[in-house]
């Protein structure tokens, strides 16, 4: 019974991180129909931005985290203005695939800029908390608790923003029916820009959290992004609540498999689950299969 504690701690922590990474990815997919292959790189940039702010410029921790969000949001905005917007204008029919290729190009570029600026060797993220709480045999490091709380707080804030504010309502409306939104005076392009900024900011902070339990490296965001893809697919692309539930559930499964069968079997187990789910439900667990009329 000694594995329950570690599995829970590890599963909940990675689950929170996956959920946060998935939220940004899913938001962009749901609004723009765009799979942002540079999402993982936004995580990386956030991690490095916080590192630079905190340990090289000596800024206080909250400012460093804000810096990470700002860098993520800025790059998100640039991706929209320089890549996604022109691509969607030029050929909307092929956008779904062309944007994946183009954003991968962006990811490759940004990742190499990070490599040039900081070098390939792993760096320690200074924003860490030491110590742990023990409840009997149950040990919960503060760091993990901070990550879980921060991620849940960010998700709650995003949910509130989307549900309660006018800008959030416009984002949801545009995602559901862009033509109708235009007819009501919603500047759809600006809404898309906001979505990419929001997603970039979430990714930036997520990168800080990820790097605080691992290490900073130029490929920091690759693994969370790949997992986030998996979560999105299982939940049904674009479904936000579903994506978050799936993230926690699959992270727990992954942690369990890793404890029982070894670390290398975690990802294959996830893939097996995805394939099984999609064979039964091609639109994902929470998704609806679109009926295409001919």
């Amino acid at each position: 019974m000694d594995i329950i504690g570690p599995v829970l701690v590890s599963g909940m922590t990675t689950g929170a991180l996956y959920a946060l990474a998935t939220l940004g990815l899913s938001l962009v997919w749901g609004s723009l129909g765009m799979l942002n292959m540079a999402h993982g790189t936004l995580l990386t940039l956030g991690g490095y931005a916080a590192f630079t702010a905190a340990s090289q410029l000596g800024w206080p921790v909250p400012v460093a985290v804000l810096a990470a969000a700002a860098v993520g949001g800025l790059i998100g905005a640039l991706i929209f203005m320089l890549v996604a917007y022109p691509l969607s204008r030029r050929n909307p029919e092929t956008f779904e695939t062309t944007i994946m290729i183009a954003t991968f190009g962006v990811a490759l570029t940004l990742e190499n800029i990070v490599l040039r600026l900081y070098g390939g060797q792993p760096l320690g993220q200074p924003l860490t908390v030491g110590g742990s709480i023990s409840l009997g045999r149950f040990v919960l490091p503060w760091q993990n608790l901070v990550i879980i709380i921060a991620a849940i707080a960010l998700m709650a804030a995003t949910a509130l923003f989307l549900a309660r504010t006018k800008a959030g309502r416009a984002i949801r409306a545009t995602a559901q029916n862009p033509d109708a939104a235009k007819l009501l005076g919603v500047p759809v392009a600006r809404v898309y820009l906001q979505v990419l900024i929001l997603s970039g900011m979430l990714a930036g902070v997520c990168g800080v959290l990820v790097s605080s339990i691992t290490q900073l490296s130029p490929s920091l965001g690759a693994d969370p992004m790949l997992k986030a893809f998996i979560m999105c697919v299982v939940a049904g692309l674009g479904n936000l609540p579903g994506a978050i539930i799936t993230s926690f559930a699959l992270a727990l499964v992954e942690a369990l498999v890793q404890f029982l069968a070894g670390a290398r079997w975690g990802f294959p187990a996830l893939l097996a689950i995805v394939i099984l789910v999609l064979i039964r439900r091609p639109g994902g667990l929470f998704g609806r299969v679109e009926m295409r009329r001919l």
Partner: peptide
């Protein structure tokens, strides 16, 4: 040498946007 991957990334993104 160091800028090979960087250049490749820029080429992919730019070609996709400018000459699809």
């Amino acid at each position: 040498g160091e800028f090979r991957s960087l250049g490749l990334g820029v080429i992919i993104a730019a070609v996709m946007v400018l000459m699809p």
